[in-house]
Design a protein around this nucleic acid. Structure first.
Lengths: 207, 207
DNA sequence: TGTACATCAGTGAACGCGCGTTCACTGATGTAC
DNA sequence: TGTACATCAGTGAACGCGCGTTCACTGATGTAC
């Protein structure tokens, strides 16, 4: 009961990669067809049903996998950049990861906003979870001890959103020409955010 | 040559609104069909061709209109909030606008990331234009005179991205329950960004 | 104003096509003895 | 180890359906005189 299972997993992976490839070329998850994905994976259409009940199920599985991937990546990035103020370094590390495994990131960044409702929900929930993780990480640094939990979430959300924004812009521009410009923009934005965090006074009252 | 032209414009608008409605309910622009949109607009499928050569053309026109809409709205918001530090007020004003005309905003926010390549390009370009406008506005305030143009763009980009993020989250959650929480989160983020901007020193060297 | 003709937004039938899904099947892999 | 049976990933034909697009049309609106 090993060979058969292994082959099945390979086919499953082929389906997922077929979906990612076609989404990269075309118009997002909603534009995919079951037959198209099966064809790209070298499988007859009916074979698809051995792996997923329908396309939506593939989408949801893909979302979960991609999020796992992202969280693992970002945790590595954060550990690597434990220096604290090494913002630029951590951005560079993240960019390297995005460039290595672009399709999963592209899927998340695009379907987060543009996908079918269920898919959006899954991704949204995963990203919230991810924001909480980052907030938790931040809470361990002395500099942030004076932040109430809610404000840490707010800060983490801002950072994550800024980074996703970078990922989207990077992927929108496949040639790596102006990459460094985008990266330096994001690095500046993160630096500015950190400056703001340093002079942050919680509950300062209405603005 | 007035009545006929006027009726034609009405039908055209019906098509656009049909598309917006269906996108709101379903899976984004890529998931729309020409027949479905025509049906929703009370038009026979072949009638569609009297207004657009194909669905892509409708999408591009829609993108242009929506962006015009957004720029007009945001300009009003900015003027209304000319007090300078009235961040919360301007966010509230924007939210009111989003709630009044949600479909155009939803279209932009979703297709910016998730739509077909051409659509993404148009929206991306329009948003860049919009960021430049904001940067120009900022440059007129004394507080920002020490900012190089590049850094103003960076700041404007951060603000716009944060606001789009709010719009997306608001639209993802149709019931207006936790609206105020999202708004206060965004208001805090903008306040933090402004704090960062206050202590910003351009060209401070590597971080 | 009235008439004869032109325009053109919207109609309805028809087409070929790719779609998702069903079904009975095949044959390699796995299991029991 | 060898044999007989079970499982099940992948096959291939077939279905009904909605799709985009074509075409010739209708009849209200617009124009010329």
């Amino acid at each position: 009961m090993a060979l058969r299972e292994e082959k099945k997993l390979q086919t499953r992976q082929a389906l997922i990669e077929a979906a990612l490839t076609l989404m990269h070329e075309g118009g997002g998850f909603s534009g995919l067809s079951l037959r198209e994905v099966s064809r790209q994976a070298g499988l007859v259409p009916t074979g698809f049903y051995r792996h997923f009940p329908d396309m939506e199920a593939l989408g949801l599985d893909l979302a979960t996998e991609a999020c796992l991937n992202l969280r693992r990546t970002m945790r590595e990035v954060r550990l690597r950049a434990q220096g604290g103020a090494a913002v630029l370094e951590s951005v560079k590390a993240l960019v390297a990861f995005i460039r290595e495994q672009p399709l999963y990131f592209e899927f998340l960044a695009r379907e987060r906003a543009g996908g079918p409702p269920k898919l959006r929900h899954v991704i949204h929930a995963e990203i919230r979870r991810f924001v909480s993780e980052l907030a938790e990480d931040l809470s361990k640094w002395p500099a942030y001890h004076r932040f109430p939990g809610e404000d840490l979430e707010m800060l983490a959300d801002l950072v994550v959103n800024t980074v996703i924004h970078l990922a989207l812009d990077l992927l929108a521009q496949p040639y790596e020409e102006d990459e460094s410009e985008l990266i330096s923009r994001t690095a500046k934005q993160l630096r500015l955010i950190m400056l703001g965090a340093m002079s942050w006074h919680p509950e300062k009252g209405a603005i």
